[in-house]
Design a protein around this nucleic acid. Structure first.
Length: 270
DNA sequence: AAGAGACCCTGGATGC
DNA sequence: TGCATCCAGGGTCTCT
C-alpha cells in the first residue's frame, strides 16, 4: 500500500526520468482513472506540456507542467508508475499511459482501479486540505501538540486522517504507535507531554526508516523499477497477528479501528 | 465533532 | 478440481 515512504520512493525514482520531458499524448482504457477534467479535455490540456518537476505531497505525486497547470497522481491501493520504452507491451492492468517525447512512456498500472489522475490549474484544489508534512523541519513536537489540541479521537483514526497529518497509512500508523508504546485505541486527549513526544518521534522514525528502506512490499507495492522495497523486514506489528512481539514475546493483537485492521502489542503499548 | 459503515475494485485466500 | 464467498485497503460520502 503506497504511503508516504512508498510515494517518496516513487517520486525519487521517476524524477530523473521525467524532468524536462514533453508529454506528446495520452492513452486511456478506463476513463474513471481520470478524476478531472473529463478524459477528452484532460488529454487535450496535457498534450504537448513539459514536466518541470516530480514531487510529493502526502501520498500524492505532483507533476508541475510548463503552463502553470499541475498533473497529480494518487496511487491509492495498487497503483504503480514506471517509465519504460513505448515498444514494451503494456499489461492488462495498465489503464493510463503518457507518451513522452523521447520514445518512452509513463505508465500507470492499477490492478484495483482505485488510483486517480488529476489535472488542475491550482494544485490546492486537490491537496489543499492535507495536514502538514510529518518529515518537514517545521513539523515539531509543538506542531503535533497543536494539531491534537482540542480534539478527542482514537489515535489510529487520527493518524490515518490526512487532514491532520499527511502521508501516514495503515502500515506506518501501526508501526509508529508501536514505536511510541501507545495503544491504537487510546484517545488523543489522554496523552501527556512525554507521550506526544514519543508519538512525534515514532511517526518520524518509521517514516524515515521506510524511505531508507524504499518502502514496504507487503502486498503489491513495487518500486518503479519493479523491485521490492525492504521495509517489510523492519515491520514490528503490521500483519503479525498472533506472532510474538519482538520486544516482549506476547502475541500481536489485531482489531478493527476506523474500519481498518490494526495491529499492536497489548503488553508493550499503553 | 467524531466514528461507523458503505462504496469503489480485483486477486488471492478460504470454504464446501 | 471448481465454484462461490470473503477480505484488504485509501479516500470519500452518508448516517448517527
Amino acid at each position: 500500500m503506497p504511503e508516504l515512504p512508498e510515494v517518496e520512493t516513487v517520486a525519487r525514482s521517476l524524477r530523473p526520468n521525467l524532468i524536462g520531458l514533453k508529454i506528446t499524448g495520452v492513452r486511456n482504457t478506463w476513463p474513471r482513472h481520470i478524476d478531472r477534467p473529463v478524459l477528452a479535455e484532460f488529454i487535450d490540456r496535457v498534450r504537448d506540456r513539459t514536466i518541470m518537476d516530480v514531487s510529493r505531497r502526502g501520498k500524492f505525486l505532483i507533476f508541475p507542467l510548463d503552463n502553470e497547470e499541475t498533473l497529480i497522481i494518487h496511487l491509492r491501493m495498487s497503483g504503480h508508475l514506471a517509465v519504460i520504452h513505448a515498444q514494451t507491451p503494456a499489461d492488462k492492468h495498465t489503464h493510463t499511459i503518457f507518451e513522452l517525447a523521447n520514445g518512452q512512456e509513463l505508465r500507470f498500472r492499477d490492478t484495483r482501479k482505485f488510483g486517480r489522475v488529476y489535472l488542475v490549474s491550482n494544485h490546492k484544489d486537490v491537496v489543499g486540505k492535507l495536514g502538514p508534512e510529518p518529515l518537514d523541519k517545521g513539523f515539531t513536537v509543538e506542531t503535533l501538540a497543536d494539531i491534537l489540541d482540542g480534539k478527542s479521537r482514537l489515535l489510529k483514526p487520527f493518524l490515518l486522517d490526512q487532514t491532520m497529518i499527511a502521508g501516514i497509512g495503515n502500515i506506518y500508523a501501526d508501526e509508529a504507535l508501536f514505536y511510541a508504546g501507545l495503544k491504537p485505541g487510546r484517545k488523543t486527549d489522554t496523552l501527556d507531554a512525554l507521550e506526544i513526544k514519543k508519538l512525534h518521534e515514532g511517526i518520524q522514525y518509521v517514516l524515515q526508516l521506510g524511505i531508507r528502506r524504499e518502502g514496504a512490499t507487503i502486498s503489491t507495492y513495487l518500486k518503479p523499477d519493479g523491485e521490492k522495497g525492504s521495509m517489510q523486514e523492519d515491520v514490528k506489528v503490521f500483519r503479525r497477528t498472533g506472532e510474538p512481539c519482538f520486544r516482549c514475546g506476547e502475541p500481536i493483537q489485531r482489531i478493527i479501528l476506523g474500519g481498518r485492521s490494526t495491529h499492536y502489542c497489548e503488553n508493550c503499548q499503553k
